[in-house]
């Protein structure tokens, strides 16, 4: 697949897409979609549950429905139309894309298609100055210890309480990142109440992220938090109600509770970095598309299980870092 002839004109910073519950962290997959056509772009996101319009520096017109994405970008020099289909969700995404481009400066149309990896190489050319590294490893997770759910002392309905999410940790990179590698986010994500449990029980988000709290149960929930970074109380609401969305604009640990169901526990970890991921339930993680340099790698499972290690990332290298809980 040929390298884009006009790529040097791009404002080449990679885009890091915020992880969400419906679209788990894809991190540098966003780098693939930086149809960074330079002088102006618009970014339109349409999903089944939200709609957004923004005009960021590296944005574009983007229609995102389920796993399909239609991406349109334009500048003085290029016009691109991209159709992408994602076949997986998770830290690593396998996508198939079809890209139609026209370079006004050179003339002619180009048709590109292929798997994600091909496209990644294609678009990586202009951002070689931010050559990317990766970290993988394993975090020793605490034993599951879900709170006891007691029946109502004085009678009343008891719904079926599902199992709480198994323990997981959030691994994130902190430090001074290269200029242009961090883009302010206004992402929106969801944290559900299902089976009288928070899903996910641990949600990492970037500062500035908007979180909604849909109720998936046939009874009332009342989500609240008295944590210092975010203090709120949504009141009682049921399925199909839309409680006020909350913007998490301060970094820190936000503990979530339900006023009606005392056993429910959730945590939103608000991070001041775009480089983070949630581990699998066996503790394995992988952070891709990281900028090279010296940073601190941190792992947060709960307040008793937080770890950090200094790391030095080199271009095109994958570092292996385990947090063994000691």
């Amino acid at each position: 697949m040929p390298c884009h002839a006009g790529s040097s004109r791009r404002l080449a910073a990679p885009k890091h897409i915020q992880g969400t519950e419906s679209e788990p962290p894809r991190r540098r997959v966003g780098g693939l979609w930086t149809l960074d056509f330079g002088l102006w772009t618009l970014d339109l996101r349409v999903r089944t549950s939200n709609f957004g319009l923004r005009i960021p520096r590296f944005g574009r017109w983007m229609l995102n429905v389920e796993r399909w994405m239609l991406n349109v970008g334009c500048s003085l020099f290029d016009f691109g139309l991209l159709v992408r289909r994602s076949f997986s969700e998770g830290g690593w995404t396998l996508d198939f894309g079809l890209l139609v481009r026209r370079s006004f400066s050179e003339g002619g149309w180009t048709l590109d298609f292929g798997l994600l990896v091909c496209a990644l190489l294609f678009f990586s050319c202009p951002i070689s100055s931010h050559a990317q590294a990766a970290i993988e490893g394993k975090v020793a997770l605490p034993a599951p210890d879900p709170p006891i759910a007691s029946p109502p002392r004085y009678g009343g309905p008891v719904g079926e309480i599902a199992s709480a999410d198994p323990p997981a940790a959030v691994v994130y990179l902190e430090g001074q990142f290269p200029p242009g590698s961090i883009i302010p986010t206004n992402a929106t994500t969801q944290l559900w109440q299902r089976g009288m449990q928070f899903r996910p029980a641990l949600l990492p988000v970037r500062v500035g992220t908007t979180v909604t709290f849909p109720n998936g149960d046939d009874l009332y929930h009342n989500v609240f938090s008295y944590s210092k970074p975010k203090r709120f109380d949504l009141g009682r609401y049921r399925k199909d109600d839309k409680p006020a969305a909350q913007v998490f604009d301060k970094p820190g640990v936000v503990k979530l509770y339900c006023e009606i169901h005392e056993h429910m526990r959730g945590v939103i970890l608000v991070l001041n970095t775009p480089f983070f991921t949630r581990t699998a339930t066996n503790g394995l993680y992988r952070l891709d598309h990281l900028p090279s340099g010296k940073y601190t790698l941190k792992a947060w499972a709960d307040e008793k299980h937080t770890f950090e290690k200094p790391v030095e990332l080199k271009p095109h290298e994958t570092l292996h870092v385990d947090f063994d809980g000691r």
Binding site: P151, P152, R153, Y154, G155, G156, P157, V158, E160
Partner: peptide
């Protein structure tokens, strides 16, 4: 002491010294 013979809350049998079922303030 409460015995709930089924897996749901359709039947509970309870003995002891406990709050009344009358009214809506007890809860």
């Amino acid at each position: 002491l409460r015995w709930t013979p089924t897996d749901d809350s359709r039947l509970n049998i309870q003995f002891g010294k406990f709050a009344t079922a009358v009214g809506g303030w007890v809860q």
